[in-house]
């Protein structure tokens, strides 16, 4: 059913999604924590910037990134200056784009679950001699665990499903930037509906399995 090209696209997609999710855990957690504990204009501005990829057409985001990371863009100038060339049409370029594109899917669930932890347990920990980092690690993270799992799953699946940004920025290079969604598009363009069906079926089954798993996670929560 699936050709070696299809398998290549699946491997690449999984690599992109897991790299993006890992990076977003590191980048998104401090942002989400700060948003959950702050008030005021700056916080609102940051929250809006984080949410932009939710409403912006992926092609627009991809276009701006292409301009910025291209040879004459500011990011492109920087990457050439440090000697790694330019990022468009490379796997690292795809990762950078995915991180921006999926940022709200990491930050928003994290932020909501940090907010749900509330000030109470954190203050209790402070009166029990726990330093700020200590109470984050031993109280906030365990209490936010279900939200953290949700954030990871949302980010991963959302990256798997990304299409427009990849097409704008990564093109369609096998084993470099041809992810599953692009591969399906190619099959359809070539009237190979059978192969499109097979890959689309894989994505559908994957999405269902993930959402099913998330329901179970949500129902378990922090039980007794």
């Amino acid at each position: 059913m699936l050709t070696s090209e299809d398998w290549g696209a699946i491997r690449l997609t999984l690599r992109l999604a897991s790299t993006t999710t890992a990076i977003l855990f590191v980048v998104g957690t401090p942002i989400a924590w700060w948003l959950s504990r702050s008030r005021g204009m700056l916080r609102n501005a940051v929250a809006a910037v984080v949410a932009v990829p939710l409403v912006l057409p992926p092609s627009v985001l991809g276009f701006y990134l292409l301009m910025a990371m291209g040879a004459s863009g500011p990011i492109g100038a920087f990457t050439q200056w440090i000697g790694i060339g330019i990022l468009p049409f490379t796997f690292p370029g795809l990762v950078v784009a995915s991180v921006l594109y999926s940022l709200p899917f990491m930050v928003q669930p994290l932020q909501a679950s940090f907010e749900a932890v509330g000030a109470g347990p954190m203050e209790a920990a402070a009166t029990l001699r726990a330093s700020p980092l200590d109470r984050f690690l031993t109280v906030a993270l365990p209490l936010a665990a279900p939200g953290i799992a949700t954030a990871g799953v949302m980010t991963f699946t959302h990256t798997v499903g990304e299409f427009g940004v990849v097409l704008m920025l990564g093109g369609n290079i096998p084993e470099v930037s041809r992810v599953v969604s692009v591969q399906i598009y190619d099959h359809v363009e070539a009237f190979e509906y059978g192969r499109a069906h097979a890959l689309a079926g894989v994505l559908l089954a994957f999405s269902f399995a993930v959402l099913f798993l998330m329901q179970r996670l949500r129902l378990r929560g922090v039980g007794p």
Binding site: P121, E123, L143
Partner: peptide
């Protein structure tokens, strides 16, 4: 030692 009105025990 601080005792909060609503106990504030760690639920986990």
């Amino acid at each position: 030692g601080y005792v909060f009105q609503d106990a504030n025990l760690f639920p986990h």
